[in-house]
Amino acid sequence: MTQVNIRPSRHNLYNTHIIPVRFEYFAPSSLEEALELLNKYGSEAKVLAGGTDLLVKMKMRVVEPKYVINIKKLKELSYIRDEGGEVRIGALTKWRELERSDVIMKYFPALYDAVKAMGGTQIRNMATIGGNLCNASPAADSAPPLMVLEARLILASREGEREVPITQFFKGPGKTVMRPDELLKEIIIPKPEPGTGSAFIKVARTAMDLAKISAATAVKVEDGRIKFARIAIGSAAPTPVRAWKTEEALKGKPFTPEVIRENVKLVETEISPIDDVRSTAFYRREVSKVIVEDALILSHERVVKGWMK
């Protein structure tokens, strides 16, 4: 019999009936207080928003924070504000609120698609958009749309605020540029210039699942030629990524199915998919091209035929 050195399973530590982790709990009532706590406990603390990622991870012992800072009470971080040229979304805004917002539906079809594709109603009632970004999953549904919509994120700490373009926010699975003492406060999305269409397509195992592969696009066609085409892909690399080379290649070219099909082949070179429980690298590579093409066509169609339920 071969005797081997095998890593033992940790499954006796999992208990999803409870949160099997000891932690100290804070529920700050103001942003200032929250930032104060983060400043003090930052590296050993976890912020709790909707908890739909964090609590799962704690129950499965993926993270075991010493301190949990529940920011749910900070109502001032939950809003969708139309400010003319841009829309500001508080980090604590629930997906369900995005779903019900005319502003989101009207200006940001790609984000609206993502909202519809995310979880089920119960999850959307709990989960926040800020949590989705800070969790930094390569499959986060809000990321690709926000990337092609060129969103900017406001990070706050006791030291003050800073603005980070979303394309520079993600660093790896579960990793972002946020410092331990920082909180995501707001997401700013500029309204796209008139004539821009956008879309998001997600391929998943079932109607309620994380993406195997996803893509968002925003495109503007002028006089039959592509003025710009922005492309972002989820679940195909350690972070959601923009397909810069493909975008560059499409620029200025006529918007025809043939041109698009030819050029989206480049997408494959801009991603680094892996095999995992949800899918295979082969599948992701093949289908990324397909859904980028579909999303580009759908984005443009929405301009031509109009968009709105």
């Binding site: 999803t16 799962v56 089920g120 195992r205 079932t206 109607a207 309620m208 699942d209 994380l210 429980v277």
Partner: peptide
């Protein structure tokens, strides 16, 4: 929660 899927 995320890893054994059945249809909905």
């Amino acid at each position: 929660i995320t890893d054994y899927k059945i249809l909905t």
